[in-house]
Design a protein around this nucleic acid. Sequence first.
DNA 1: CGAGATGCGTGCCTCATGCACGCTTCTGGA
DNA 2: TCCAGAAGCGTGCATGAGGCACGCATCTCG
Lengths: 154, 154
Amino acid sequence: MATNDAGLNDTGHEIADALGLLLRRTTRARLYHQLTEGLGEAVDELTYPVLSGLARTGPISAADLAREAGLDRSNVTRRADRLEQAGLLRREPDPADRRATLLVLTEQGHRIVRTTRQRLATRIEASLDAWPAEEARTFARLLQRFVEEGPFAP
Amino acid sequence: MATNDAGLNDTGHEIADALGLLLRRTTRARLYHQLTEGLGEAVDELTYPVLSGLARTGPISAADLAREAGLDRSNVTRRADRLEQAGLLRREPDPADRRATLLVLTEQGHRIVRTTRQRLATRIEASLDAWPAEEARTFARLLQRFVEEGPFAP
DNA sequence: CGAGATGCGTGCCTCATGCACGCTTCTGGA
DNA sequence: TCCAGAAGCGTGCATGAGGCACGCATCTCG
């Protein structure tokens, strides 16, 4: 028991420490700020979650997007205003519910999201160049599993 | 080349997606809020970075801690005020520089940090129970390496 | 058909943030 | 030795994001 428990305990602390360091270095705001740099006035660390959330879900109402992204509805509205004015999304009346307004990504909005996602992937790949391909794949698999089944799964 | 490049590309995108999901689910603010729950009025998601930074570095000046934690000096001062009032840290004149004030964790402050770190580790261990111990250790090792050598290393 | 629920946008208040200032102390060159 | 510039600290101030609640329109269900 001693070795097993101690070993697991150490593993937990190791992951906790690494995760803490990762979160400290990679604030969402900081990462989004970097990823959206130079992509126009309207897209920054505040509006990007709306943009990328929209890309994930497809056309969606502001209230549902707020729940999805963990934001307040009023903030979604205000950020969507900026993105709409910049032509990155448009509002369409929901044909099934005339109260609702669907937020829809424009083609330009899709381009922005593709750009940022490619930027992140490229950045990751660059630093993974030094890794044996086998280990990189293993890490990707375990990280996916950790995110989906791990301590932060819903 | 096709398979290798495509494979690496996929790996990069897989990690990017998993990382994005992780950051979305685990905001620093949200995690710190949970970890510090019920530990007193003074310790919350705002003051915790100061507290844990102090635990990592040991006695340190406000300016240096601000650099370490990526905060503005004025915010470090204000948050340290709250923590000081709650008895979690104290200020000591720096014997080597009379301009500086060293922030020092009290024993009670150490206890708080130990508690939160144990909470996180426990939470991680709990969800890792279902993993084969071998894979958990592998993940811990690869995550450490990713954080230290990866795309977010300084 | 009517009462409650839901959606949207907006106004308002609160609070964290970053900047700049005044003051003290240190440092290095004249 | 001394003085000008740098660096530390804390505070006041302006800005801006966030959350809450309201008014209005529409849906839903009894």
